[in-house]
Amino acid sequence: MISRKLELLAHPERSTVLVVDDDLLNRSIMVDSLQPHYQVIEAESGEQALLLLHRHKPDLVLLDIVMEGISGVEVCRQIKEDPDEEIATIPVLFVTALDDSRQEQLCWEAGGADFIAKPVNVITLQYRVKAHVTLKRQSDVLRRLANLDGLTGLYNRRYFDEQLQRSVRDQANNQQHWSLIMLDVDHFKNYNDRHGHVIGDECLKEVARLMMSSVRRSQDMVARLGGEEFAILLSGTRLDGAERVARSLLNTIRNTAQLSVDNGKGNELNYPFVTVSMGITEILGNGDLAEEDFLKQADEALYQAKGAGRNRICRYAQGLIEEVGDEPV
Rank of each mutant, 00 (worst) to 15 (best):
V198D: 14
G196T: 10
A208I: 09
C203E: 02
L180G: 02
G200K: 05
D193A: 10
W178V: 03
H195P: 05
H177W: 12
F188D: 00
S179P: 09
K189H: 09
C203Y: 00
V185G: 01
Y191Q: 03
L180M: 08
L180Q: 00
M182R: 12
Q175G: 06
G200L: 05
N190C: 13
W178Y: 14
S179W: 10
L180E: 04
K205Q: 15
F188P: 04
I199Q: 13
Y191W: 07
Y191G: 02
M182H: 02
C203N: 05
N192C: 09
V185N: 01
V207F: 00
Q175E: 12
N190M: 14
M182Y: 05
S179C: 12
M182P: 00
W178Q: 00
V185W: 04
L183Q: 00
Q176I: 03
M182I: 12
Q175N: 13
C203G: 01
I199R: 13
D186A: 01
L180K: 04
M182E: 12
R194W: 12
E206N: 11
E206G: 03
G196Y: 10
D193P: 05
D201C: 07
H197F: 10
D201I: 06
K189S: 12
I181W: 04
V185A: 07
H197K: 11
F188S: 03
Q175F: 05
N190R: 15
L204T: 08
E206S: 08
V185L: 04
I181F: 07
D186F: 06
N192T: 03
K205M: 14
E202P: 01
Q175R: 13
V185T: 04
H187K: 10
M182D: 03
R194G: 09
I199T: 14
L183H: 01
C203Q: 02
K205L: 11
N190L: 15
Y191D: 01
Q176A: 14
N192P: 09
G196C: 10
K205G: 11
H187T: 09
G200Q: 06
K205H: 11
H195V: 02
Q176F: 04
K189Y: 08
K189I: 05
L183S: 07
G196N: 08
F188M: 04
D186N: 05
L183Y: 04
H177D: 15
D193G: 09
I181D: 06
L204M: 11
H197A: 08
W178T: 03
G196H: 10
Q176H: 13
A208T: 09
H195F: 15
N192L: 04
Y191V: 00
H177V: 12
H197E: 10
C203K: 02
K189G: 12
D184M: 02
G200N: 06
A208H: 07
I199G: 06
R194F: 14
N190Y: 14
E202K: 14
Y191H: 08
D186G: 05
V185Q: 02
M182A: 09
K189T: 11
D193Q: 09
N190T: 13
Q175D: 11
L183T: 11
D186K: 00
H177A: 15
